[in-house]
Deep mutational scan, measured.
Amino acid sequence: KTYTFRVRIVDEETGEEKEIEVTAKSEEEAKKAAEELKKKYPNLKVELE
């Protein structure tokens, strides 16, 4: 079973919002993916929905 999570990304500089879908095998995995995004884009606000 896989879970699909919507991750909302807000670029703090431009105020631009993007939504991406993360497919993960567990909620834990999705959280890790969101953390990776935060590391990659430090000025983005990442929200897991």
Results as ranks from 00 to 15, higher is better:
residue 1 K to S: 07
residue 1 K to F: 09
residue 2 T to D: 11
residue 3 Y to L: 07
residue 3 Y to P: 05
residue 4 T to N: 06
residue 5 F to P: 00
residue 6 R to I: 15
residue 6 R to T: 13
residue 6 R to L: 13
residue 7 V to D: 00
residue 7 V to A: 03
residue 7 V to G: 01
residue 7 V to C: 06
residue 8 R to V: 10
residue 8 R to Q: 04
residue 8 R to L: 09
residue 8 R to W: 15
residue 9 I to R: 00
residue 9 I to Q: 00
residue 9 I to G: 01
residue 9 I to T: 03
residue 10 V to I: 13
residue 10 V to C: 09
residue 10 V to R: 12
residue 10 V to T: 13
residue 11 D to N: 13
residue 11 D to H: 03
residue 11 D to Q: 02
residue 12 E to Y: 09
residue 13 E to K: 12
residue 13 E to R: 12
residue 13 E to D: 09
residue 13 E to M: 11
residue 13 E to F: 11
residue 14 T to S: 07
residue 15 G to E: 01
residue 15 G to K: 03
residue 15 G to Y: 02
residue 16 E to R: 05
residue 16 E to G: 03
residue 16 E to Y: 08
residue 16 E to F: 10
residue 17 E to I: 14
residue 17 E to D: 04
residue 19 E to L: 15
residue 20 I to V: 09
residue 21 E to H: 09
residue 21 E to F: 15
residue 22 V to A: 01
residue 22 V to H: 01
residue 24 A to R: 04
residue 25 K to G: 13
residue 25 K to I: 11
residue 25 K to V: 12
residue 26 S to P: 00
residue 26 S to M: 01
residue 26 S to N: 11
residue 26 S to G: 05
residue 27 E to F: 15
residue 28 E to Q: 09
residue 28 E to F: 09
residue 28 E to C: 10
residue 29 E to V: 03
residue 29 E to W: 05
residue 29 E to F: 04
residue 30 A to T: 01
residue 30 A to N: 01
residue 30 A to C: 08
residue 30 A to F: 11
residue 31 K to L: 14
residue 31 K to Q: 12
residue 31 K to P: 01
residue 31 K to W: 14
residue 31 K to F: 12
residue 31 K to M: 13
residue 31 K to H: 12
residue 32 K to W: 12
residue 32 K to A: 13
residue 33 A to L: 14
residue 33 A to H: 10
residue 35 E to M: 11
residue 35 E to L: 12
residue 35 E to I: 09
residue 35 E to R: 08
residue 35 E to Y: 10
residue 36 E to M: 13
residue 36 E to Y: 12
residue 36 E to H: 08
residue 37 L to N: 01
residue 38 K to L: 10
residue 38 K to I: 12
residue 39 K to P: 02
residue 39 K to G: 06
residue 40 K to V: 08
residue 41 Y to P: 02
residue 41 Y to H: 06
residue 42 P to A: 05
residue 42 P to Q: 05
residue 42 P to I: 05
residue 42 P to C: 06
residue 43 N to L: 08
residue 43 N to F: 10
residue 44 L to R: 06
residue 44 L to N: 04
residue 45 K to D: 04
residue 45 K to N: 07
residue 46 V to S: 04
residue 47 E to C: 10
residue 47 E to N: 08
residue 47 E to I: 15
residue 47 E to R: 07
residue 48 L to F: 14
residue 48 L to K: 05
residue 49 E to W: 05
residue 49 E to C: 13
